[in-house]
Design a protein around this nucleic acid. Sequence first.
DNA 1: GCGAAACCTGACTGATTTGTCAAGTTTCTT
DNA 2: AAGAAACTTGACAAATCAGTCAGGTTTCGC
Lengths: 155, 155
Amino acid sequence: MRITAQEEYGLRCLLQLAQQPEGEPLTVREIARREGLSAAYVEKLLHLLSRAGLTRSVRGQSGGYCLSRSPQQISLGEIIRALGGFVSDAEICNQFTGNLDCCVHVNNCGLRPLWRVAFYIQSMLDRIPLSALLHDEQKVERDLMETGRSSRLIV
Amino acid sequence: MRITAQEEYGLRCLLQLAQQPEGEPLTVREIARREGLSAAYVEKLLHLLSRAGLTRSVRGQSGGYCLSRSPQQISLGEIIRALGGFVSDAEICNQFTGNLDCCVHVNNCGLRPLWRVAFYIQSMLDRIPLSALLHDEQKVERDLMETGRSSRLIV
DNA sequence: GCGAAACCTGACTGATTTGTCAAGTTTCTT
DNA sequence: AAGAAACTTGACAAATCAGTCAGGTTTCGC
């Protein structure tokens, strides 16, 4: 269970965009410079994020990338899903790679409670806006406490 | 941010061991049969878990594997760490693969709040015992609510 | 118009992760 | 003591992921 490189670097790019004044696009080259990444890699990440509807590109000489919504309206959950995905219902027993014809647990999956945990984590991330990462760490902590108290697992 | 194959299958093996009567080892062959995995792969997973101190092997003709502690005393967090690890403090800025000599955020890392989130998730998993996955899903839900209320991020 | 600056895209290479194989060592049963 | 059942281990092949490259298309400023 790890945060992938793609998620980390993609998020860094988004944080750069989030610090930009409204409506002023930032170039790939500039983001790459600030984050110490190659321009090609930043392009790939931003392309992924644009496909997911999180960023918007402006072509042409004075173009670049913007967030498509305000940092308050973009959640960490969305970002994680755009950049590599999370465990999801669909892939649980279908993508089973074992020897049997299908997952032996298909009728009474002993791991279903684990997926429940995963969904819980995901719903927690859905409640944390990108803007939370712009502020101090205490802010994030308060947000987490909030989700901890209020969220329920959907039965 | 995903649960890896190794984590999933390793956990399945542990769940098989957890259902075994105390002190009766289960053979690799039998676990493999029940889970529809190859014996070689199950061996590899159990070897990893033994190294982490979660399982114990009994050699010889009537041997096999047991849990080294009761399912109540083994947490999901430990299991995840044994089977592929979680993000950890040490690897955050050190393993940075960018072009710069070191992470450009080393002094004021914009992602630190994200690691805080990761640690929070990890501490939540540390509070869920393996035994919780043996019971019904409502049980897991109650456990999660408990951790949601009681845990604090360590500052 | 035309060239420079910027985004767009798919193919490709290297690294990591998955899962297998094969040749051990240990222990029990008879 | 011999053989079978079981764990041990390191090397390997296949699949997936990270990151690069090259050659596009679009737009702006002059």
